[in-house]
């Protein structure tokens, strides 16, 4: 969680400094979900993510330097400068991409589950997506397909309550997204998305079930993003300052620390270690070269 938080804060500062050329959607406030789920995954498990995907990439094992360099448009970035914030690829660690389109990650994680079932492998496909995706056809088609084929796929809905600025309570008459799992005949679970231990426990059960042939699970994590939809955007009018402050007080990092008062020294040491790691990562990204324009049309075909 510290790696995600401090990397995101470094990216926010870098955006203000003009080092990020395109969009930058941060994951601040939602760290418990990526951390709690990915603690159960190996590099052989396939993760598919959405436009707010920095946290997923980091939790899956992409080093901060490769993430930051990607947003800086450098050749050392995880997508070699081809993607930016919304196209993060590192198949070497099972990070199978973030997407600028809401929904496809659900279908692709279903497809990964299909491959693993077809080839008899004990791995899982995992999709991370927001509440906005739950009203998209991909959600309904993907969950149905995963259920009828009993695929080892985990659907993690990060309900941060707004699709950009459209409230989930406006976009559906049933904002308890986990209950929609019943429509497809699969288990649906709801957890406090800011409670890393609760996420870790729920994900652990679902992933173990999937690995042993028990099929897919939908987990809704109720959470909140405490920064604007994207860096540089205004963040008013659609939600109250009181709500933002209330959720900031439910900071997942502080909530975990409060559970373990005897470990304060270790928490402080982790924070300091991560600070050094992220500073080095920013320096690495700044020093990295841009890709050569002549390579812009490479890798269109195999």
């Amino acid at each position: 969680m510290q790696v995600i938080r401090q990397t995101e804060e470094a990216l926010a500062r870098s955006h203000q400094a003009g080092l990020i050329h395109g969009a930058c959607h941060t994951y601040v406030g939602e760290e418990a979900i990526a951390a709690g789920v990915c603690a159960h995954l190996t590099h052989d498990d396939a993760l598919f993510s959405t436009h707010r995907g920095h946290g997923h990439a980091l939790a899956k094992g992409v080093p901060p330097r490769e993430l930051i360099a990607e947003l800086f448009g450098r050749v050392t970035g995880c997508s070699r400068g081809r993607g930016g914030s919304m196209h993060l690829f590192s198949p070497e660690v099972g990070m199978m991409g973030t997407s600028g389109i809401v929904g496809p990650c659900i279908l692709q994680a279903t497809g990964a589950g299909y491959t693993f079932k077809l080839l008899g492998k004990p791995h899982v496909g995992v999709a991370f997506f927001g509440d906005g995706a739950s009203n998209n056809g991909a959600f309904h088609e993907g969950l149905n397909l995963a259920a009828i084929y009993q695929l080892p796929t985990i659907f993690i809905c990060e309900n941060n309550q707004f699709a950009t600025e459209i409230a989930i309570t406006y976009a559906t008459r049933n904002a308890d997204i986990w209950t929609k799992a019943a429509s497809f005949g699969m288990p649906g679970v709801c957890v406090d998305g800011n409670d890393s231990v609760a996420v870790w426990q729920a994900a652990g059960e679902a992933i173990a079930r999937a690995r042993s042939g028990g099929g897919p699970t939908l987990i809704e994590c109720k959470t909140y993003r405490t920064r604007a939809h994207a860096e540089g955007m205004r963040d008013g009018g659609y939600r109250s300052a009181e709500d933002v402050e209330k959720w900031k007080a439910r900071d997942p990092i502080k909530m975990l620390a409060a559970r373990m008062p005897q470990e304060q020294a270790e928490f402080a040491a982790i924070e300091a270690d991560v600070k050094a790691l992220v500073e080095e990562a920013v320096a690495f990204a700044k020093a990295s070269p841009y890709p050569d324009g002549i390579t812009a049309t490479e890798h269109i075909y195999a």
Binding site: A46, F48, P91, M96, G97, P104, I106, L107, Q108, A109, T110, G111, A112, G113, Y114, T115, L118, G125, A138, E141, G142, L145
Partner: peptide, 8 residues
């Protein structure tokens, strides 16, 4: 979309 993820 499933086929895409399977191919990946």
């Amino acid at each position: 979309g499933l086929a895409c993820g399977a191919a990946m």
